[in-house]
Structure formats: structure tokens, C-alpha cells
């Protein structure tokens, strides 16, 4: 039934991580609703907005690494995680 989806371990981990992040954010939101605020980004954002911006820009960081360099993707991942943290805290 799901054989056609051709799951692999890395992609399963990837989606599980995303799902976990979403779950944590949702629970966090219910427990402690977030207020929109203005950080270093040009627009006022909520926690969810910053998460989305962070994930989308992380995807682009990875693509830049793949397209322009031969460097390991772990570096891109590290940069993305740091960037995501910075964005969530001060964005």
C-alpha cells in the first residue's frame, strides 16, 4: 500500500523532525499563546511566522551549499540550526 512512496530512513527522520517541531510549537502555543512582536526582521512576526521563515531560509541555505560548493551538508545544517535559533529568539 505505501511501498510506492519509497520511504527511506533519512527522509523518515527528516519528516519526523518536522512533525515533532510542529507538535512542540502547537503545544507551546496552546500552553502559552504567543504575542506578535517586532524583532530584527522588517515585519512584526509571531513564533509560528519566525519558524516558517527559518525553515524556508534553511532550505535555501542547503540549496546554496549544494549548488555552489562541494562542502559537506552538515555545515549547512549547523548553520541552519544556529540561524533558526537566532531567528526564533531575536527575529
Amino acid at each position: 500500500m505505501i511501498a510506492w512512496m519509497q520511504w527511506t530512513l533519512p527522509t523518515a527522520i527528516f519528516f519526523a523532525t518536522i512533525a515533532a517541531i510542529l507538535l512542540v510549537m502547537t503545544v507551546f502555543e496552546v500552553v502559552k499563546p504567543c504575542v506578535e512582536r517586532k524583532g530584527f526582521l522588517p515585519i512584526a512576526t509571531t513564533r509560528g511566522d519566525r519558524l516558517f521563515i527559518g525553515l524556508l531560509s534553511s532550505a535555501y541555505i542547503h540549496l546554496l551549499f549544494l549548488g555552489l560548493t562541494e562542502a559537506s551538508l552538515w555545515i549547512a545544517l549547523a548553520i541552519s540550526v544556529v540561524w533558526l535559533g537566532v531567528l526564533l529568539r531575536w527575529g
Binding site: A3, W4, M5, Q6, W7, T8, T11, F15
Partner: peptide, 15 residues
Amino acid sequence: LMTVVNYSVQDIFGP
């Protein structure tokens, strides 16, 4: 979309 991600990291010749 998840399927596309799965496909994108593999070389697929058949089921």
C-alpha cells in the same frame, strides 16, 4: 509532497 522528497534522494529503477 512527502513522496517527492523520498524520490528525490533515490535512484529508482522499479518498485
